[in-house]
């Protein structure tokens, strides 16, 4: 266990109870459940599933960000680059269109189900492209990334089309709100969707970690060290697909976590991608949990959407990164 893992695990252990207490209704930790009306209900049915979901979402995005930066050998890479998140978002938007056509018992779960189908379609497309680009002839990573960008661009355009042709004003506002990402009113049902998939995705990414280390020296050197480019690509698509797809399915688009977190973690490790994976998951969990707790207590008329809050933090951070890169400090 490295230093970064210990630091972020400790921070998370501190943040989880704080997050459970914070909100429009503050819970007095010393007064017992009787001190705050409905404290047990608020804790068990609102705060706890929301906190667990924030941890799951952040952990998945943090680990996926670390893996993507390792794979693309680029500190500016983000899990969104593969087009999985935009495709999941497109799937979710489609559920606003077609969910009403389904039987009520299925319709309740149509949003996460459609989002996961969108993510799966992106993964399938990427796997098909991977079969053609990563043939071991070099240049596979660049071609594959461009393919991912193409998928992201297409999904973005189709999502925009779905928004402009929304069946009614209510659906339009629901789509836009959902796309901004949030954990408001999420239940244990959402946790049971996201947690196993994120855990499976993290496990897959962990198995790819040492091969990502080899990529530190470039694709040719990595292959000479026994890295199988096609296997690595499949592991990465599956890992990022599961973590990001699960995140989008339950929370909408939450950007910048995958970009920022590995940068917070890297100076505390030996900088190899494999050393970043677990601490990035923990740091991602901390960031999303802290941001979600903050949006709950901000004195605004309506709750600030989590996706917007993280973008407000992320955009200046991205600018700072660019300035550091320009100075050669990265």
């Amino acid at each position: 266990m490295n230093r970064a893992t210990l630091i972020f695990a400790s921070l998370l252990a501190l943040l989880i109870p704080l997050s459970l207490l914070a909100g429009r209704v503050w819970i007095d930790p010393f007064g017992g459940v009787q001190a705050t009306p409905n404290a047990a209900l608020i804790l068990m049915e609102l705060r706890l599933p929301r906190a667990v979901l924030a941890v799951v979402l952040g952990a998945g995005l943090g680990a996926a960000g670390a893996a993507m930066q390792g794979y693309l050998r680029n500190p500016l890479a983000d899990p969104g680059l593969f087009g999985i998140a935009p495709m999941a978002a497109l799937g979710a938007v489609a559920s606003f269109w077609f969910g009403a056509l389904l039987p009520p018992i299925i319709a309740a779960w149509s949003l996460p189900a459609f989002a996961l189908i969108g993510a799966a379609m992106a993964m399938l497309l990427l796997a098909l492209i991977a079969g053609r680009t990563s043939s071991g002839a070099g240049g596979g990573i660049a071609l594959f990334t461009l393919a991912g960008l193409m998928i992201a661009s297409l999904a973005g355009a189709l999502t925009a089309l779905a928004i402009t042709m929304a069946p009614n004003a209510f659906a339009l506002s629901q789509i836009v709100l959902w796309l901004n990402g949030a954990l408001t009113d999420r239940s244990w049902g959402d946790v049971w969707i996201a947690a196993p998939l994120t855990l499976a995705g993290f496990a897959v990414l962990q198995t790819a970690a040492r091969n990502l280390d080899a990529l530190t020296l470039g694709e040719d050197a990595a292959r000479s060290m026994g890295m199988d480019p096609r296997r690595l690509l499949i592991l990465l698509v599956a890992g990022v697909g599961l973590t990001v797809g699960a995140g989008v399915a339950v929370a909408g688009i939450v950007g910048f976590v995958g970009l920022i977190v590995p940068h917070l973690v890297r100076p505390l490790t030996d900088r190899m991608p494999s050393s970043l994976m677990l601490p990035s998951a923990l740091a991602g969990a901390c960031l999303v949990l802290a941001a979600d707790s903050a949006v709950r207590v901000l004195p605004l008329v309506t709750e600030l959407r989590l996706g917007i809050a993280l973008s407000l933090i992320g955009a200046p951070f991205f600018l700072w990164l660019l300035i550091r890169m320009r100075r050669g400090n990265l």
């Binding site: 050998r73 280390d213 530190t216 020296l217 030996d270 190899m272």
Partner: peptide
């Protein structure tokens, strides 16, 4: 195999790199 390029993506310590 030692490629011509000496490009190293991350600023790792010598020992970490050799351990690769």
């Amino acid at each position: 195999y030692l490629p011509q390029s000496s490009d190293i993506a991350w600023d790792v310590a010598v020992e970490v790199l050799v351990t690769l």
